[in-house]
Design a protein around this nucleic acid. Sequence first.
DNA 1: ATATAGATGTTTACACTGTAAACATGAGAG
DNA 2: CTCTCATGTTTACAGTGTAAACATCTATAT
Lengths: 201, 201
Amino acid sequence: MAEKLYHHGDLKKEMIQKGIQLLNKEGYEGFSLRKLAAMCNVSHAAPYRHFENKQELYRAINLEISTKFRDALLEDIDRHRDDPRTQLLELCTHYISFMVDNPDYFRYIFLTSHDSQIEISNEDIRLPGDDHPFNIGKNYAKEYFCRFHENETAWILDFISLWSQIHGLTLLLVNRTIRFQGDHMEYARRMIESYLNSFEN
Amino acid sequence: MAEKLYHHGDLKKEMIQKGIQLLNKEGYEGFSLRKLAAMCNVSHAAPYRHFENKQELYRAINLEISTKFRDALLEDIDRHRDDPRTQLLELCTHYISFMVDNPDYFRYIFLTSHDSQIEISNEDIRLPGDDHPFNIGKNYAKEYFCRFHENETAWILDFISLWSQIHGLTLLLVNRTIRFQGDHMEYARRMIESYLNSFEN
DNA sequence: ATATAGATGTTTACACTGTAAACATGAGAG
DNA sequence: CTCTCATGTTTACAGTGTAAACATCTATAT
């Protein structure tokens, strides 16, 4: 319990952690560097030793949340090694439910700093790098969709198509634009299944 | 050319118009009440005679953009009275292209003030009111999807499913998470068509 | 026609924000 | 053991949203 050290020790890490807390408590609007500095028991200028500006702190938090998100999803997948279809379905439903449970995360990840991603170019379609949360399902989607096409790259459009739907449904649910009464994941799951079914026939 | 009237005349309206300009120029982050007041040649406190706070101005701008958006879409539809399928397809592609052309609008409409909507309750699914931009395609979707179901309300899930996909693809394109080289609307259109086709069989 | 009230503008004030600059402290390399 | 540098603090400043007090115009009642 290092009480009142002048040097904090691992401020950078703590700011990211407490930053996520602050984000959850105050939302994106109420977020401020000075509040966060106070939460870390540190003067309001201290953050500038670790982040050049607010934007860079945002990026760090963004990255941290993305990582948490991806880890949570991948962990769930490990429990369903059966077939690609089940994996894909599980991935989609957890993608949605994770974000519905943490509404601010979604806005945060997909609304700050939409640059700085390594891009993977595939002829005429460019996806972000494999570490980008959008791409979590890519490999599972490939495995599932490939067999429906003779064309090697057509599965990418299938993947984008599926992921657009997940992504959009998530946005609609997170913003409460649409609401399912009762168990909303029941409806989400049904939608995804019926989408996947359309390939089976 | 009323040059220097003390009373401005129609400040409320001008603030909304210039507000949209300012939004396009500076983006959501750079937006400020005081800049906007300056653009209207008015002191920085004048806005408070017309809007209780910044949030309420946001809502007004949000509403104005939503209206523009809906008008643009409906105008396009009028030119395609042929069949519901074509209408739906046109609606979807224009939904996307309008937002890709005005990236800030999308973030703005779907990221501010996600309350204050009249809700239409349908048993266990709640959609926003008919004036909400999300619902522009609802009636066309109903007309198109209804014939594929014996169940009266199953088309709503179809609608949500389709609109989720449009919505998500728009978000991905607006944020430049994914990029289609060349004519990106070509790809978008293909995706929508292949989705609609899955119902025809 | 004129006094007056209410709508709409301005000025001043304040707390809070991000950020820069100058200064302080302490941990680790020489 | 000292000196340097990473990491903290203090002070300062311009920009923000918002409230309160004051000014001016418009419209309405007499």
